[in-house]
Simulated assay, not measured.
Amino acid sequence: MTDYVTFVVALKAVTLVLGGLITYFATNAYRRTGSRPIGFLAVGFGFVTLGSLLAGAAHQAFGLPVNAVLLIESALVAIGFGVITYSLYE
């Protein structure tokens, strides 16, 4: 069980770093260009990254059950992908 938790925490950390970098680069691109779609892209990736962060924190720090954690993560990821889809449509 310990190896599993360690592996999940490591993957969440990688997801947080990469998602944070994508959000950062998209935000910088939005500031340079002022392009609304790129701004929405940054917000969308921010939601996806936030979903991963909050899910991991809710489980590890606050001991929420796995079902609640999955609900939080899935909701934020779905919102993020919706915003990303909108950014590509616009």
Score class of each variant (00 low, 15 high):
71 L>P: 02
18 L>T: 13
32 R>N: 06
13 A>E: 05
38 I>D: 00
73 E>M: 06
72 I>V: 15
48 V>R: 00
86 Y>W: 13
55 A>E: 12
46 G>T: 06
46 G>K: 06
50 L>P: 08
83 V>D: 03
49 T>M: 02
43 V>S: 09
45 F>D: 04
56 G>K: 07
24 Y>T: 14
36 R>Y: 08
17 V>M: 09
82 G>R: 11
28 N>V: 14
42 A>M: 02
15 T>N: 10
75 A>C: 14
71 L>H: 05
17 V>H: 01
77 V>T: 08
50 L>A: 10
17 V>I: 15
50 L>S: 08
39 G>R: 13
18 L>R: 03
68 A>T: 13
52 S>Y: 07
81 F>I: 13
76 L>M: 12
51 G>A: 11
39 G>P: 15
11 L>Q: 11
51 G>P: 15
27 T>V: 13
44 G>S: 13
34 G>C: 00
47 F>I: 06
86 Y>H: 07
8 V>R: 15
9 V>W: 01
48 V>F: 09
56 G>R: 00
61 A>W: 11
80 G>V: 08
66 V>F: 08
77 V>E: 04
49 T>E: 01
32 R>M: 07
31 R>W: 04
9 V>N: 12
25 F>H: 01
71 L>S: 05
43 V>P: 02
81 F>D: 02
84 I>H: 04
58 A>Y: 05
8 V>A: 09
85 T>D: 03
29 A>W: 09
15 T>E: 05
79 I>M: 12
61 A>E: 07
74 S>C: 09
57 A>N: 00
3 D>I: 15
63 G>V: 15
31 R>Y: 06
84 I>T: 12
68 A>G: 08
39 G>T: 14
83 V>Y: 03
25 F>A: 01
44 G>R: 10
13 A>W: 07
63 G>I: 12
7 F>W: 08
83 V>A: 03
31 R>G: 00
35 S>D: 14
56 G>T: 14
71 L>T: 12
83 V>H: 03
12 K>D: 06
71 L>W: 05
81 F>M: 10
35 S>F: 11
